[in-house]
Design a protein around this nucleic acid. Sequence first.
RNA 1: GGGCCCUUAGCUCAGUUGGUUAGAGCACUGCGUUUACACCGCAGGUGUCAUCGGUUCGAGUCCGGUAGGGCCCA
Length: 915
Amino acid sequence: MTSRIPDKATVDGLEDRWNDAWEAAGVYRFDRSKKRDEIYSIDTPPPTVSGSLHVGHVFSYTHTDVIARYQRMCGREVFYPMGWDDNGLPTERRVQNYYGVRCDPHLPYEEGFEPPYAGGEGKSIKAADQVPVSRRNFVELCEQLTAEDEKQFEALWRHLGLSVDWSRTYQTIEPASQAVAQQAFLRSLARGEAYQSEAPTLWDVTFRTAVAQAELEDRDRQGAYHRVAFEPAADLEEATGSYESIYIETTRPELLPACVALVAHPDDERYKPLFGKHVRTPIFGVEVPIVPHRLASPDKGSGIAMICTFGDVTDVIWWRELSLPTRPVLGWDGRILADAPDAIESAEGIAAYAELAGKTVFSAQQRIVELLGEAGVIDGEPKTITHPVKFYEKGDKPLEIVTSRQWYIANGGRDANLRAELVARGEALDFVPAHMGKRYENWVNGLTGDWLISRQRFFGVPIPVWYRLDSDGNPEWETPIVPDEASLPVDPASDAAPGFDESQRGIPGGFIGEKDIMDTWATSSLTPQIVCGWREDPELFAKTFPMDLRPQGQDIIRTWLFSSVVRSHLEHGVLPWKHAAISGWILDPDRKKMSKSKGNVVTPMGLLETHGSDAVRYWAASARLGTDAAFDEGQMKIGRRLAMKVLNVSKFVLGATGITTAADDSLEAGMKAAAHVTSAAVTEPLDKATLAGLASVIEAATFAFDAYDHTRALETAEQYFWTFCDDYVELVKERAYDGAALGEPIDPFAPCSPEAASARAALGIALDAFLRLFAPVLPFATEEVWSWFNEGSIHRAPWPTPDRTRAAAGGANPLVLVAAGAAVSQLRKIKSDAKVSQRTAIVSLDLLVPESQMESVNAAKADIMAAGRVKSMQVVDAVMAIDPSVDGLGPEDGSVSALLDATVVRTENVVLEGA
RNA sequence: GGGCCCUUAGCUCAGUUGGUUAGAGCACUGCGUUUACACCGCAGGUGUCAUCGGUUCGAGUCCGGUAGGGCCCA
């Protein structure tokens, strides 16, 4: 069988067929010859390849694709690249587990290294069992694993039908991206926005890296308040005339050797007299002052707290604002430092410290509690509490604070002017939905410091600077050596500094390379610059930047969105995009956020295969931007039904119009037939009404899409589509067939009655519009139908305008279809109630119609009779008919007045065939 | 503690600037295999619009309080 239009339509298998065809024809290939105002550019989120894609990704990426397809049909050249975020810690961690290795930068590179495991997914290999490898070997494994992931990701996205230009993919770790990240960094360095600073930094002891404010999260942890006595120093004893101890309560007794002061609220009457006087720390005997500060809580514990360098971020604030000394006791490995702070001078103090040195925070705490107990300075039993503790969002040990040299980029956290500028940028950005802008504003206004971008990790973009070594071999941190922009990307760990050669590395008078890499957001924040060709393709950049759309999740407004705005503001002085489309979460049926850890084994590919991509896309498109949606396979079944309906009703329309007959000969003949059929005059009131209604639907859908409300657009089209199928098609079937016998092929060019020609033209025009309206959401089913009688892809066909349908409708009132539909409904109900087949003829009946609809029903009377197989029908004014004085057959409940303004059509005096 | 969002039918959700009798789909029940469709069609019932108060001729809609849920930030 060579027929173009299948006998039995199916949505199965459309994905592979059309993806191949689209790729071959380059349907989604970006045409860079277009002008700026013809281009719509999208800053697609690069998914993290170290995880797997889940249902939430499918959800939000579909939203973007629906927008992309709409814009493309509106005639814009869509710039729609796809990237992979293979940068950073998640990849490192996955590589460690997958291959059973860990990075040791001191080791030499090993050619042809074979990792001990492959595919250790899920069962994490203990750190002790991981084989240490060189940084280069480690990075190679990262690249190897991410390449495999990226293939799988692309396959999924293609199957889902994302209309991405697959010739434009990028990786956040690839050299070009690194070069962009480094160039942006160097420009910020030159302008003074990037700087290094020795400062207390939030530190993850597991990963041994600094952590930025945006990566923090609070978790409730058990802790215990220990009530510890501090003895008064001489000045305090003199002032109060007593030798009573001051009791503080602390959850971190192990930081006692790091204590630099006690602090109480300035208004606290209990402690007011003590401010400025001193106490001695127990065991260690260090004299520390009692100081006032507004952040001390009078109602927490005893109302007076010890300040240590550093137990938490409040300690940092106190330390900074009160200019206290620094007595660090914690190392980068989370263990107590070997050497006691200089302030500890007593023999007992030094001995006690020696017992703690080298211990983890946990064991040091146990030991010091014992020591304090032995010394008799602990009062009572520890009080167990639950309190919020800061964690790195990817870590599982509480963050510590250590002092180290780190790189920062200004983000308004320490500069009110910059902050105000960034808030203003946020206000100028079109957030969809608008209230998401509040999250941005809250975040910017809540910043407490600049953006810490350096990380002590391995797989990432190196910070592109070197440092001279003085004659003693000490690095000159203040005057970094920078590379030429043309030489980017560079790796200071293996490339020699400009003006030096490799033999001078690490020797006095030579240089050393910066060993830190950048935070992954330092690269991701530049995705517009990466995809638009900021560095190496200025012509493309001018045409695509600032971009039109940034789609992303609500959880990364404070990170990705904000940091992108920062970079664009600093480098280009503009917003990076006009619109930010924020997708919601996918929730379990039990309203919890869907997560892998909960053992949800719904894989996206499985879903697509079970329901079909169009169906899954329909489910996603049914949820508005910014709104959380339930994971609902029922909704996918509805989408599948819609896609099937599109195929089937298309088969009907093409059959009844005769286009099928012609198309079975050749595509050219089919196209000619379609043009011929739809050019006929639309004369019948019902046909005109249907097209008039359709014109309004097109208008509404277009309006909704322009406002980034794809849900409304879909709903509007869908609702009218079902009316079209259920009512209009049923009403005009007979007329369109024009007396053709069962199974007889219809010749589209043969003469037919004007009524039939009118029906066929309307059917053809409507089908064409519906296919285009659904194309963004159901790209496969619509393309399939389109291919039966059109050349090229529907996805490059113009979005419908109301003009064509409106012209054919000739100002008709859409109400005719509504009224006629209500009438056929009544006829069906009669047969349904009488439990007879819908084919049963009605010999005669009176149709009671409200006066307002008389004209409409009369206009479609012949179609109504044909659809209901009615042999004789009287259309009667309902008000007249129910007047008992007319025929005595008014409603038995006497509800005459209720029917006076009735909008429903009723029937009376029905005689069914055979009754 | 602060900010934002949400609460409408058994379920998932619409409901625009206040305006007749608050809607859709699913689920459920009944009927029907009709020359597009059984992966089907048709027909049918379904409500304390969380709650209390206010504004108004009129409130699901606007304002305030309360309760519950969610997210973000302290």
